[in-house]
Design a protein around this nucleic acid. Structure first.
Length: 888
RNA sequence: GGGCGUAUAGCUCAGCUGGUUAGAGCACCUGCCUUACAAGCAGGGGGUCAUUGGUUCGAGUCCAACUACGCCCACCA
């Protein structure tokens, strides 16, 4: 035992996280307690971190996500598991490229001038300079990752996994290339997947435009929100069973402005009820029209370039921006008398999730993952319970998306990312997909060009659970730690990430990547608003850590994590939990002040010297440990934080520490003092352990102050429930003590007797005289806590003391003789109110008991319970009334 | 258009498989610097559980409808 380190020497009077957090984090790293050993005999517990973007800085979402993961990992370590928490970062294609591009522009350069190689080198430089920033911030938070294993999605190993997966999917015909209408960001100049497009409602207009028949003699009117696409129209469509427009089919009409003659066709896609029932078809600029065009072999005419500028097909609008062109075309249509109507129209418009530019449906050659064949297997796996979403409601969300899943566009026209492992032969036009660079084409040509595009960032993150463990090699890590135990993440990336990990995990590992998916809430501000820089309501976790300490932030986040709810965070809430840390700190200081230098191990406890409250607190610790284990297994973070909060504050501090004071002062003799010290020593050991996963720094510091053996708390074992002999009867005796003390305190407050002033005496009467024993045995303690000189037990039939006020519970009657301080009217009023309230209860219960159905159908114990409750209420009323008449 | 979630004290939320008098923190009121802690202690006020029906002996809890708010998905021009 480290006597030297025990005591108050290092403990400040109030809790101050500053001097302890960095110190202990370094110690943990030094001792290697976060290291995972794949050859361990212990059962495995593993988590892969949702890799933060290398560009990122720690925000509250990360803080929450990683606090929860850390709580799980630290608990499991103490429970004897071999824990792997795999850390790393994501290269975050578009986001990172944008950041570095901006930096280059600020220096007066530009990406195109630099060229691909120089630019990519520049991003790597940037990554090596700033990429570790977020890792350092996670350490500040206390994250117990196995840092030696830190991975990056563009590491050589992970890149190899990416190429391997691409090639295998291609060979299985699950990846294909083709010219389709995709979502295009005219600012990022890249294709986006459907998920990367955010739809927002915007106010626009619905324009009615007249298309005249080619030979004259009539016209058809169509509606559009995007008149600039008129230039790319290649048909007008009506519904096949639309009587109203039947006569139009087969006619030719003239596209306004541009004069192209196009046919009127029939297609089921058209809603005959909408507008005139005729719709213009622009295969190159609308996803729906693209499909119609495909069915009818229509020409696809792009009228814009990749930057959203009108191109050579746009006639006189060439060179105009798409929105300028829209305005110009509207004017021209008006001028030509072809614009028949213009009504305000609110509709949903796609925006780039990275730069918020309005996305353009754009025709281009891209790579896709064929998701349907894999999706069915994924859903089956979840349905079979191989993967469990917690809270369960997210399963429905997952299914809904998977049931409607569409092919995933994975190519991006960026420079930063995994380059697509496909080569094109300049001589024979062959496409070679290969994990390694081919030397020559099958035709013998050496003129091979690699595809210019890179893969969607989410392609590599989909492989994260196994790529980080060394796949495609067969490694001890995969053997030991795959599948992982649980994935902890926010619902915002269920589709982006979770669904795709399941897809790739099942496809390549034949096993789902995790057993549980714990989906936590989003952190919002105190008014429920999403935090954003523009709103100025962002709470920076690093500022909070600086001000309140990492433990306070962690405890707050954990306590506010109730399943399936958003978290509304404010500084005042963090303060509440910082106060708790201070409470714990001071309780520990109190214990340490009184432990002195003796050894007080639990085995040394002299059971014969224990009193009611000692046995009670020991029993309580045991059952709290049991509850904590269950709550932890069920991912009840908020509940377990609150349990500890209530137990430490409301039971340990408010009752036990107060009751232990006389013994610690030596007033109960040497044996009692020693026994009490031992109890304190043992109780704090378990309490610190139970709190350690949530508040690792403070508990480690206190652990060392107590000098519990020579190990650090991070290596100690999780407390188990312990049988305490005599614990049950101590618990019921404690109830008596608390009932009497609370009653007397309440009576004191009634006459505003100052706490320091001792009340001369109180009288106690009780229905069940066997409980007198509890009062007699703890007379000293009850008097101490209620500041009363003398407790008189009233024998049966004794009349109540003169000039006293009373507090009547179901079991106890407490009388406080107050002499001339008695305000008879006030006391009568108080008691009458109490009596009236009880009378209402009694009436309700007796009505219930008069109900035959209730007596017959309700379980016997419920009926019995109500009978007792009624008798109890009636007896209280009777006694209160007696008191009232005594006062008169 | 489809799916999901939430309505309980002034605020933020607990309340598990229906069964004592619906709880906590903050805020509020009263009295206390009682040598672990004023970041504290003790006592107290405050809710017809959104609305309406239904199931049941019994509903904050289960079911339906309705209202309000929020979120996700979707190719109505």
């Amino acid at each position: 035992m480290e006597q030297a380190s025990r005591g108050l020497a290092g403990l400040s009077k109030s809790y101050d996280p500053k001097p302890i957090e960095d110190k202990w984090y370094s110690k943990w790293l030094e001792d290697g307690i976060f290291k995972a050993d794949p050859n361990s005999e212990k059962p495995a517990f593993s988590i892969v971190i949702p890799p933060p973007n290398v560009t990122g800085s720690l925000h509250l979402g990360h803080a929450l996500d990683n606090t929860l993961q850390d709580i799980l990992c630290r608990t499991r370590r103490m429970q004897g598991y071999e824990v792997l928490w795999m850390p790393g970062t994501d290269h975050a294609g578009i986001a990172t490229q944008n950041v570095v591009e901006r930096a280059v522009r600020n220096e007066g350069g530009n990406r195109r001038d630099m060229g691909r190689e120089a630019f990519v080198n520049r991003v790597w430089e940037w990554k090596s300079e700033y990429g570790s920033r977020i890792i350092g911030q996670l350490k500040k938070l206390g994250a117990s990752c196995d840092w030696d294993r830190e991975r990056f999605t563009m590491d050589e190993g992970l890149s190899r996994a990416v190429r391997r997966v691409f090639v295998e999917l291609y060979e299985k015909d699950l990846i294909y290339r083709g010219k389709y209408l995709i979502n295009w960001c005219p600012r990022c100049l890249t294709a986006l997947s459907d998920l990367e497009v955010e739809h927002r409602e915007l106010d626009g207009h619905l324009y009615s435009v007249r298309y005249d028949f080619a030979g004259g003699g009539g016209s058809v009117t169509v509606m559009t929100t995007r008149p600039e696409t008129i230039l790319g129209d290649t048909a007008i469509a009506v519904h096949p069973r639309d009587e109203r427009n039947r006569h139009l089919v087969g006619k030719s009409v003239v596209v306004p402005i541009i004069g192209r003659v196009i046919p009127v066709i029939e297609d089921n896609m058209v809603d005959p009820e909408f507008g005139t029932g005729a719709v213009k078809i622009t295969p190159a600029h609308d996803p729906n029209d693209f499909l119609v065009g495909g069915r009818h072999g229509l020409e696809q005419i792009s009228v814009m370039d990749d930057q959203g500028v009108m191109n050579e097909n746009a006639d006189k609008y060439r060179g105009m921006d798409r929105f300028e062109a829209r305005a110009a075309i509207i004017e021209d249509l008006k001028g030509a008398g072809l614009l028949l109507d213009e009504i305000p129209h609110r509709h949903s418009v796609g925006h780039c999730y990275r730069c918020n530019t309005i996305v353009e449906p754009y025709l281009s050659e891209q790579w896709f993952v064929r998701t349907r064949p894999m999706a069915d297997e994924d859903v089956a796996s979840v349905k079979a319970g191989e993967i469990r979403f917690i809270p369960e409601q997210w399963t429905a969300t997952y299914y809904q998306w998977m049931d409607n899943i569409r092919d995933w566009c994975i190519s991006r026209q960026l420079w930063w990312g995994h380059r697509i492992p496909a080569w094109y032969c300049d001589d024979c036009g062959a496409v070679i997909v290969s994990a390694d660079e081919p030397e020559s084409c099958g035709c013998g040509s050496k003129r091979l060009r690699q595809d210019e595009d890179v893969l969607d960032t989410w392609f590599s993150s989909a492989l994260w659970p196994f790529s980080t463990m060394g796949w495609p090699d067969e490694t001890p890590e995969l053997e030991k730690f795959y599948p992982t135990s649980v994935l902890v993440t926010g619902f915002d990336i269920i589709f982006f990430w979770v669904a795709r990990m399941i897809m790739m995990g099942l496809e390549f590992m034949k096993k789902p990547p995790f057993a549980d998916v714990y989906i936590h809430a989003l952190v919002r501000d105190e008014h429920g608003q999403k935090m954003s820089k523009s709103k100025g309501n962002v709470i920076d976790p690093l500022v909070i850590i600086e001000k309140y300490g990492a433990d306070a932030l962690r405890l707050t986040l954990a306590a506010l994590t109730l399943q399936g709810r958003d978290i509304f965070l404010s500084e005042s809430r963090i303060e509440t939990y910082r106060f708790f840390l201070n409470k714990l700190w001071n309780a520990a200081r109190f214990a340490l002040m009184n432990l002195e230098d003796a050894e007080h191990d639990i085995d040394a406890i002299d059971y014969g010297a224990l009193r009611t409250h000692d046995l009670w607190i020991m029993t309580r610790v045991s059952s709290v440990a049991e509850e904590m284990t269950a709550l932890s297994d069920g991912y009840f973070f908020g509940e377990s934080a609150r349990l500890m909060y209530d137990f430490v504050w409301g039971e340990l501090c408010d009752w036990y520490l107060e009751l232990s004071k006389p013994a610690l002062k030596g007033e109960e003799g040497a044996a009692r003092k020693r026994a009490t010290q031992s109890v304190l020593y043992s109780v704090f050991r378990d309490v610190l352990k139970l709190l350690h996963p949530v508040i690792p720094f403070a508990t480690e510091e206190l652990w060392s102050a107590f000098g519990y053996g020579d190990t650090i708390i991070g290596r100690s074992s999780w407390p188990l429930a312990r049988e305490v002999s005599g614990g049950d009867s101590a618990a019921s005796a404690m109830e008596s003590i608390q009932a009497v003390v609370r009653a007397m305190r309440s009576l004191r407050a009634e006459i505003k007797l100052p706490p320091q002033q001792e009340a001369p005496r109180m009288c106690v009467r009780i229905k069940d005289s066997s409980l007198y024993e509890h009062v007699l045995n703890n007379d000293d303690l009850i008097r101490l806590l209620s500041r009363v000189g003398k407790i008189e037990l009233m024998p049966e039939g004794a009349s109540k003391p003169e000039k006293s006020i009373s507090y009547i519970t179901g079991i106890w009657e407490i009388f406080f003789p107050v002499g001339d301080l008695l305000d008879t009217d006030k006391e009568i009023a108080r008691l009458s109110a109490e009596s009236a309230k009880l009378a209402k209860d009694a009436e309700r219960i007796s009505r219930k008991l008069e109900n035959k159905n209730f007596i017959e159908k309700a379980p016997a114990e419920v009926v019995e319970h109500d009978r007792e409750a009624l008798a109890d209420a009636e007896s209280r009323i009777r006694r209160i009334e007696e008191n009232i008449s005594g006062l008169r």
